[in-house]
């Protein structure tokens, strides 16, 4: 069994409009892949469709997590199978503390009848909070309620650290972060890199890739991956802009 997240010929519709068209991508564990692309090209759709959001209709294709098709699974089952989504706009949940929220998520990963050990849980939680420079007082605060943009993103990374997913999809985690917050978040993600985990970094800008250096960069355009390369591709994109891709793609058509 291959330890990879394999997206095969995936097509996705939202309200009758096809957004992803026959998309292919393979993310092996141990690697960080970046997906770049202009707005409206389907990057966030890919993230939401993978997580199982009910508004996104899969019209064809497969997504194999270590060989198992997750498209048959419910949202919560996919997460327990090892898929994590760091959201661009995480929800606020009034009255539910971060500690209780993460505890419930960890508890859900235990076998029937097993109980989470509270001391160990808090020890792990505080460790990860310190790493992400989140004040320990936050444990009793309601999830994302009244958080700044940067605090919300750090909270996403905290959850990722606590849930130890096999594959993490990070949807524009860099958006809305100032440079200090970006550095803290990137440090956190770098510490979570490792042979047991694949990370898919979705971003509009090259900036975050200065901090989280990807193994591969993919360019997405109009619902497909149109170009893949090494980390230098991101720099090239930054220099030449997305119009460069557009020209490159339309050129052969113009010639014909």
């Amino acid at each position: 069994m291959k330890q990879q997240l394999e997206i095969k010929n995936l097509s996705v519709k939202v309200e009758e409009t096809e957004i992803l068209k026959d998309l292919n991508l393979t993310l092996p564990r141990g690697e960080v892949h970046a997906i770049m692309g202009p707005n409206g090209t389907g990057k966030s759709t890919l993230a939401k469709a993978l997580s199982g959001h009910p508004d996104y209709e899969i019209t064809s294709g497969e997504v194999l997590l270590d060989g198992e098709n997750i498209l048959e699974m419910e949202v919560d089952e996919r997460a327990r199978a090892g898929l994590f989504m760091a959201f661009q706009y995480p929800s606020e949940i009034p009255g539910v503390s971060i500690a209780n929220f993460i505890r419930a998520a960890r508890q859900a990963r235990l076998k029937e009848g097993e109980e989470l050990e509270a001391t160990q849980f808090y020890k792990a939680l505080y460790e990860k909070m310190d790493m992400l420079q989140i004040d320990r007082k936050f444990t009793s605060r309601a999830v994302n309620e009244g958080f700044s943009g940067g605090e919300k993103k750090r909270n996403e990374i905290l959850q990722m650290a606590m849930l130890e997913p096999k594959y993490a999809i990070m949807d524009e985690t860099d958006s809305g972060l100032d440079i200090d917050a970006l550095r803290i978040v990137s440090d956190g993600v770098n510490k979570l890199r490792g042979p047991e985990r694949g990370i898919l970094l979705i971003t509009h800008y090259q900036r975050i890739l200065d901090y989280i250096v990807p193994d591969h960069v993919h360019v997405m355009w109009n619902g497909r991956i149109v170009k893949s390369g090494g980390k230098e591709l991101a720099l090239e994109l930054e220099k030449k802009g997305y119009d460069w891709i557009k020209e490159e793609l339309t050129e052969p058509a113009a010639r014909a």
Partner: peptide, 21 residues
């Protein structure tokens, strides 16, 4: 959806939302 995406089953998610309420 946010809670489900963290692997929390729907019944537990509802319970958490009630406690939050």
């Amino acid at each position: 959806y946010y809670m489900l995406a963290r692997g929390i089953p729907e019944s537990v998610a509802k319970q958490l939302l009630v406690f939050g309420f």
